[in-house]
């Protein structure tokens, strides 16, 4: 993320780009290119298509440079272009692949999915109505700072890959890429509330998958 204080650098960078400075362009490609490709890959499934998206996005950005007014940061602007192009490609891809709607707002209105199944809680006649039937088990602790085990990574990555598009995009940008909520809302054109709904569903499911994995191992 470009820090708020980097606007002078950004202005200088834009001037260089408009003047056709290849070093400035290369620096930008190396800084944001990998992230742009990862974002493209959370919309589309094939890496060849993702590469096409990235290429089209940069061309679009270069052509639109003169129209860039600096209201959003350069990073947000670039990722918005990627998201728009990737969305178009994903819709095209969806004609041949099972792919649910990319209408993120309508995904939010999908029926409520509880974070955990109701049987994890006591019924209305229990000692503590709607309280835990039994407390969640402690997880096997993961080494701090060290590399995650390959299996843990697979559990997380596969769960994210299986999510509906909106949840997948939001958790990828927020928790894998480490963006803040405002950037995600701006790039995906979501309201803050809807962004939070999708994030909540996604995190709840990843937690449930980790619970399965990190407590079954222990038994």
């Amino acid at each position: 993320m470009s820090a708020r204080g980097s606007s002078t650098n950004e202005a200088a960078l834009l001037t260089s780009l408009r003047n056709g400075d290849e070093a400035a362009y290369t620096a930008l490609v190396d800084e944001y290119g990998p992230g742009m490709r990862r974002v493209a890959l959370s919309f589309v499934r094939s890496s060849a298509v993702a590469d096409e998206v990235v290429q089209e996005a940069w061309l679009g950005a270069l052509r639109g440079l003169d129209r860039f007014e600096g209201r959003a940061s350069l990073k947000t602007w670039l990722f918005r272009i990627v998201a728009n192009i990737a969305r178009t490609h994903a819709v095209r891809e969806a004609r041949s692949l099972p792919f649910s709607s990319l209408e993120l707002e309508s995904e939010v209105r999908a029926p409520h999915e509880p974070a955990l199944p109701p049987d994890r809680f006591q019924g209305p006649d229990g000692q503590f109505p709607r309280g835990w039937a039994s407390f969640p088990l402690q997880w096997i602790s993961q080494p701090e700072g060290a590399l995650l085990s390959a299996e843990t990574c697979i559990v997380i990555a596969e769960t994210i890959a299986s999510l509906p598009p909106g949840q997948r995009l939001v958790i990828t940008l927020r928790d894998v890429e480490g963006w803040d909520a405002r950037e995600v809302c701006s790039v995906l054109e979501l309201s803050e509330t809807n962004q939070r709904v999708l994030l909540h569903r996604a995190r709840s499911k990843v937690r449930a998958a980790l619970e399965d994995y990190l407590t079954n191992e222990a038994q």
């Binding site: 290849e22 490609v29 990998p34 997880w139 993961q142």
Partner: peptide
């Protein structure tokens, strides 16, 4: 556990470099 989920998700490995052919294509473009 939700906090730990967020922390662990932030630690899954990401592809940190562009494929060489794509990078080259971007420069040519």
């Amino acid at each position: 556990q939700i906090r730990e989920t967020i922390e662990l998700t932030g630690r899954i490995p990401r592809e940190e470099a562009l494929p060489a052919a794509l990078r080259e294509g971007l420069l040519t473009q």
